[in-house]
Simulated assay, not measured.
Amino acid sequence: MNAATLTWRALRHKPLASSLNLLLVAIGIAMMTFILGVSAQLEERAERDAQGIDLVVGAKGSPLQLILSSVYHADIPTGNIPASTLATLAAQPLVQSAIPLALGDNFHGFRIVGSTPALPAHYGARLAQGQFFTQPMQAVFGARAARETGATLGARFAGSHGLAAGGELHAHAPYTVTGILAPTGTVLDRLIVTPVASVWQVHETDPDEPAAAAPGRELTAVLVQYASPLATVSLPRWVNGQPRLQAAQPAFEAARLFNLLGVGIDVLRAIAAGVLLVAALSLFVALYGALEERKWDLAILRTLGASPAKLLRLLLAQGLLLSLTGAALGWLLGHAAVGLLGWHESLQDLDLQVWRIAPEEAWLPVIAAAVGLLAAGLPALRAYRTDIAATLARP
């Protein structure tokens, strides 16, 4: 009978204890897999959405709120800025490109963004159907926005006031769908892009909106790409010196946001590590108890020719088998949990991929193997030092 068969039969001898140890290891690895997978995908998504945007110019207020509303489209804007800001920024020699944004309405919860064709071009978008808008009140749908709203070429729709579904309908000014974009894997997939003039026209001609409340010739923000590294220092300072303007840097604000989230992620990692520690202790107790029960059997093996090294390997193999099997099960459970999170209605914007493997996951089998070897170490050492004569002499 070989070592693998002995190991398997030893674990089957106490199925309940073996199953509980397996479950503890699986839970710990599943938690780590889930945390690593979600955090890595969130960071990758944030980097993709902000790529190529060096500065966001908007109304004074919270810089983080400005980034969340204008880059990630996950918050309300800090206010509006004069439309002339776009021309002023575009004329700056330190600015390579300036993309305007005008927010205020939505269609079934998907934001209608007044901009130019430069916005889809910035994200490398291509048309799956139709063509880009050429005049006001035409709109191009991102892939997800089109899929979930059922938008088709030539269809007409009216936006609702506000950035969340349920606002007052602007029925007097319908849009026409001229194009549907192919998926980009960025925030653009859930946006509806139209000329800035469309947003102005909708609100200026709304009979139910008081003239004093209409935004007029204003923008929500301008996305800026630098022409020179020198702009990193001088341009934000110049913008912040203007009475109504504020400069926010996506890289800095995103790093600050993930630092805040990192505290919670570290806590979850600590909990997962605690579960693995409990699994190691439980595995140690189980193997040590099994060793005490099987001392006589191990002594018989020695008399039959099994070397001390073979007994050592036998106990270590039991620990490794349990921990690595638990790691495999935990890895599957962790990724399944990522998929369940991505299916939740309120989190579908995250576009989490079930089987996207984070680089840090390569360490999980090593961690699991270390847990198994450490737990089996002392019992294996005692088995190695088994005194045949003394053990068989006991009644």
Rank of each mutant, 00 (worst) to 15 (best):
T33V: 15
L36R: 03
V38Q: 10
V38P: 14
S39W: 15
Q41E: 12
E43T: 11
E44L: 07
A46S: 05
E47I: 07
R48F: 05
D49F: 05
A50Y: 06
Q51G: 13
G52R: 01
G52M: 01
G52Q: 02
D54P: 11
D54N: 10
L55A: 06
L55R: 04
L55F: 05
S62L: 04
P63K: 05
L66H: 13
L66P: 07
I67E: 07
S70N: 10
H73C: 08
A74T: 11
P77E: 01
G79N: 05
A83N: 06
T85S: 11
L86C: 00
L86S: 00
A87K: 13
T88Y: 15
T88L: 13
L89H: 00
A90Y: 08
A91F: 04
A91R: 11
Q92S: 11
Q92K: 09
Q92V: 13
L94F: 10
V95L: 02
V95I: 01
A98Q: 02
L103M: 13
G104F: 09
D105T: 12
F107V: 12
I112S: 08
T116A: 03
T116K: 03
L119N: 00
P120H: 00
H122Y: 01
G124M: 04
L127R: 02
Q129L: 12
G130M: 00
G130R: 00
M137G: 05
Q138S: 06
F141V: 06
F141M: 08
A143P: 13
A143D: 14
A143C: 07
A145E: 15
R147T: 14
E148Y: 04
A151D: 02
A151T: 01
T152C: 13
A155P: 14
R156F: 03
F157H: 03
G159C: 03
A164T: 12
A164P: 08
